[in-house]
Computed example of a mutant assay.
Amino acid sequence: MTTATETGPGAPDAGASATGSVRRPRGARRRPDWGKYFTWTVLCWLFAPIAFMVVFSFNDIAGRHNVTWEGFTLRWYSDAFAYPDLNVALLNTVTIAVLTMLIAGFLGTLLGLALGRYRFLGQSATNLVMFSAISAPEVVLGASLLSMFLTMNLAVGYWTILIAHVMFSVSFVAITVRARVLTMDPSVEEAARDLGATPLTTFRLVTLPLLVPAITSGGLIAFALSVDDFIITSFVSGSTQTFPLWIWGSTRVGIPPQVNVMGTLIFGLGVLLAVANTVLARRRSR
């Protein structure tokens, strides 16, 4: 049997038909990738306030109203701690955030491990409460916590801020850790036990290293939420000032450039922690 082979300009491309794709004709225009442009537009919109804060931390102004560019200077970084009450507020914010990261990281790790590995009575209710703490408006959480503290005759201040921050941050850590637990290969721990490792040794040498990226990520989320929180803190702070509360109070008389400097330093610290976490996670995965 003879097979005819079509040739000529109108014949289909054998290479294209074999691979299932059609070559783009020369001179044809590519369709614009609107999704990429939209993504970059949203990112630029989100990072615009941060860029404004960083740029105006170098603004050479004469007063407290740092809204008009008047020149470049580095003197605000050398004079960053000129306001004692602002320094106290920043110290309160950082210490509360660090304690929140440690306490919520510990409690959230245990909760996420239990929810991801075991089945127990009240697990559905625990999940409901955990997601309710995330989805509930901050005004509701702040008012509820204030009512609880007043009912218990607790004086609102530094420690009630810490309790409140741990309360709404622990759910984020637990969800992050639980997601990691659900994707872990149980055969790795079984192999350790088959080789004679005790449950404590298996957890310390096998389970915990596998959970470290999730624990670190959850802790960083708790740290960021604590530093950033204003609404809940305003309900339970009493006379204690934090960095967001101090900024809100200073808006009536003008925000000094030191606020931009401290905000830039806090943002830089957060970026460094995120980069360090990413680098360590990549090294562990190799």
Rank of each mutant, 00 (worst) to 15 (best):
S124I: 06
S124W: 10
S124T: 14
S124L: 04
S124Q: 09
A125N: 12
N127V: 09
N127S: 12
L128E: 10
V129N: 10
V129I: 15
M130C: 15
M130D: 11
F131P: 00
F131S: 08
S132G: 15
S132Q: 08
A133W: 02
S135A: 15
A136F: 07
A136V: 14
A136Q: 05
P137S: 10
E138T: 11
E138R: 13
L141E: 05
G142A: 11
G142W: 12
G142K: 03
G142Q: 11
G142Y: 14
S144W: 07
L145E: 04
S147L: 14
S147K: 08
F149C: 11
F149L: 07
L150M: 13
L150G: 09
L150K: 12
M152Q: 06
N153E: 11
L154A: 14
L154T: 11
V156E: 03
Y158S: 12
W159H: 12
W159G: 05
T160W: 06
I161K: 02
L162P: 05
M167L: 15
F168R: 06
S169M: 02
S169A: 14
V170D: 06
V170S: 05
S171N: 08
S171P: 13
F172T: 06
F172V: 14
A174M: 07
T176C: 00
T176S: 09
R178C: 00
R178H: 00
A179W: 08
A179K: 06
R180Y: 06
R180G: 01
V181L: 01
V181P: 03
L182P: 00
M184H: 02
M184E: 03
M184I: 01
P186T: 02
S187D: 03
V188R: 00
V188Q: 11
E189Q: 10
E190I: 05
E190G: 05
A191M: 14
A192P: 08
D194V: 05
D194Q: 06
A197M: 11
A197L: 11
T198G: 05
L200D: 01
T201G: 08
T202L: 07
F203V: 01
R204V: 00
R204C: 05
L205K: 03
L205M: 11
V206W: 01
T207A: 01
T207D: 02
L208S: 07
P209S: 06
L210A: 15
V212I: 15
V212Q: 08
A214C: 11
I215P: 03
I215T: 09
S217R: 08
S217L: 12
S217Y: 01
G218Q: 02
G218V: 02
G218P: 07
G218C: 04
G218R: 00
G219K: 10
L220R: 00
L220I: 15
L220W: 05
I221M: 15
I221Q: 06
I221F: 07
A222M: 12
A222G: 13
F223K: 11
F223C: 10
A224D: 00
A224K: 04
A224V: 09
L225K: 09
L225S: 10
S226A: 13
S226Y: 11
D228V: 07
I231C: 08
I231E: 10
T233E: 05
T233I: 05
F235R: 03
V236Q: 00
S237K: 09
G238M: 07
G238A: 06
S239M: 15
S239A: 08
T240K: 10
Q241G: 04
F243A: 05
F243H: 14
P244C: 13
W246N: 10
W248F: 15
W248I: 00
W248H: 13
T251E: 13
T251F: 11
